[in-house]
């Protein structure tokens, strides 16, 4: 049932900015840095979502996901590969034998401008192809028009179509305008059955910001205290450096803590982030920065 959206907590943009600044001033050094970077790798949804994607590119990306950088010992694999529905089966085959998940975007990604029927068909197709996780988009137009029930029902229907697959609900916070709206959309998604809430498609600027992530974490905490259900979170888009990734982990660490500090409850949606993290990891081992040419680009 649609939750009561009239008494939701509100957010003060200035106050949230200050809080974020304070998280970002944490100094992550030595062993805590290495641990954080490795954790970040294990949480990445390695993503390619382009019209020019090919099967070959997807297969290469899958190999990279399983072997981020073989010369570093004890390096985890990434959490998942994120592709369009048409490449799910390719990815699934390429990842056989690993425990890396295949995530597929769905529901007329990135705009969501299609009929419910088409969205459900697309979702079912992706699941049939073998997708372990579905990344859906909400109908922002309906949300902004105040048709919350529509948004809620749509998410619930897609959840049903997902079957066993995990559902990540993309709020596309860059189009929601205010932090209060981000909270409202988070609430609708969680009550409608989302397993994860995700900030952005990566196709709209601004994509993930620490501010909206913080608000979503706050919503997840409140939801957990009310229902006992742990919802995951995935900031996506624009997280391209190891430093920023560590700052996100600081926020996660200090707001939700240890139960959420793993790939079951936190993901980064990113593509170029992996290599920057690898570069930092090699630097902490050797004391020197290596040239980017030593890191494979797939």
């Amino acid at each position: 049932m649609l939750p009561d959206l009239n008494n939701l907590p509100v957010y003060d943009q200035t106050g949230v900015n200050e809080r974020i600044q304070r998280f970002c001033s944490r100094s992550i050094k030595t062993s805590s840095k290495t641990a954080g970077l490795k954790l970040a790798i294990s949480m990445i949804d390695l993503t390619t979502l382009e019209g020019k994607d090919t099967k070959g590119k997807v297969r290469q990306l899958c190999y990279k996901a399983m072997h981020p950088h073989d010369s570093i010992k004890d390096l985890p694999t990434v959490a998942a590969i994120c592709v369009y529905p048409s490449y799910v089966s390719t990815a699934k085959k390429a990842l056989q034998g690993s425990d890396i998940k295949v995530a597929s975007v769905s529901t007329a990604f990135p705009s969501g401008q299609s009929s419910l029927e088409a969205k459900l068909t697309e979702t079912k197709f992706a699941v049939e192809q073998g997708a372990d996780e579905i990344d859906m988009v909400i109908s922002r137009g309906q949300f902004l028009a105040g048709n919350y029930q529509y948004v809620f029902d749509e998410i619930a229907s897609v959840k049903e179509a997902c079957g066993q697959a995990h559902l990540k609900v993309i709020l596309e916070t860059g189009e929601l305008d205010t932090l209060d709206n981000v909270r409202k959309a988070s609430e609708i998604a969680m009550f409608a059955g989302a397993d994860f809430i995700k900030t952005s498609t990566g196709k709209i600027q601004p994509a993930a910001t620490m501010q909206v992530t913080y608000v979503m974490l706050d919503a997840i905490q409140d939801f957990y205290l009310r229902t006992g259900k742990m919802i995951g979170i995935k900031p996506a888009g624009g997280i391209s450096t190891a430093k920023i990734a560590l700052q996100y982990l600081v926020i996660l660490n200090e707001v939700l803590g240890e139960k959420w500090m793993n790939k079951n409850y936190f993901r980064f949606g990113a593509s170029s982030l992996v290599n920057d993290i690898l570069m930092q990891l090699v630097k902490t081992e050797t004391g020197m920065y290596q040239s980017p040419i030593y890191f494979s680009k797939d």
Partner: peptide, 13 residues
């Protein structure tokens, strides 16, 4: 529910 949200990641000095 367990209402503690203990941080697990200890920052080095």
């Amino acid at each position: 529910t367990d209402t503690t949200f203990k941080a697990s990641w200890k920052y080095s000095e």
